[in-house]
Design a protein around this nucleic acid. Structure first.
Lengths: 138, 138
DNA sequence: ATCTATTCTTAGAAGTATTCTAAAAACATA
DNA sequence: TATGTTTTTAGAATACTTCTAAGAATAGAT
């Protein structure tokens, strides 16, 4: 039996929940990594009865971004990454391993103050590049 | 007569100041826009006596990033932009015009506090996407 | 159920940004 | 000048994304 959460979310956001869109959305909801289009394709391909086209993956991701279901994260040139955590948060990219960590934050109100009235902020992402100093610290 | 600043900066950072590297560095130092590799190529091509290869532009930009002379800024998928302002600052991307504004900031100490000891931050960039609410406000 | 219009998906081609490759050129040192 | 190293070059190769045109699925009206 299928998780109805993804389909319901899509409906709420005005996106018709086709099987392809549902499995891609499900995958993004159930992962904390920030996969690329290719990684998403590989992960969901075998959850569908028919072959999944690369174009569909890109079409779907663009539709999900447009509808506000997921967010694009640009941490490197050459490819976008996708994040179903649409809450206001930052990213920390470990330059050694390439891992991306979500960082919950309390800074957004202050950032908004700083930008002032001239700017309307639609969406944003704060990215740090660095490395983890002590891998075994919790 | 040539501006010696760029060559001197390169020497300081341990990069041999070839003519190609100097004109690219000069261009980045003298612009507040955040050009792509292609825009840089077009802008500096006629400042050199010989043809400039695309590969050289990329080699040079990678060398400059490596040496800490410039910073890569990822504001859109598909291409990197370059910024000779290596001070700690944010970016605001106007989604209508595509313009990128540098935003000086006082948030970094707080962000560092938030990250804690576990993370060593090498480099970072804070990017907002939005639009300018009132174009004639100063 | 069937017709029709619309939307969605598909495979592969095309486009764009970047890197690779191998050779030539420039440079440094002896 | 000879020699080894570094840099640059043109074009091929690669990687990510979008485009295209056609077929499949879907929804609504009959």
């Amino acid at each position: 039996m299928k998780d109805p959460v993804a389909a319901e979310l899509l409906r709420q956001k005005g996106v018709k929940p086709t099987p392809q869109r549902v499995v891609i959305t499900e995958h993004l909801l159930n992962t904390v990594s920030h996969p690329t289009a290719d990684e998403i394709m590989e992960a969901v391909s075998d959850k569908l009865p028919v072959a999944l086209s690369r174009a569909t993956v890109y079409n779907t991701l663009n539709a999900l971004v447009e509808a506000g279901v997921v967010r694009e994260v640009f941490t490197e040139p050459g490819c976008a990454r996708y994040d179903a955590n649409t809450s206001e948060h930052h990213h920390f990219v470990d330059v050694k391993s390439g891992h991306i960590f979500d960082i919950p934050q309390e800074l957004v109100p202050q950032l908004k103050d700083q930008l002032g009235d001239r700017f309307k902020v639609h969406n944003y992402s704060i990215t740090f590049w660095g490395e983890i100093a002590d891998a075994d610290a919790s």
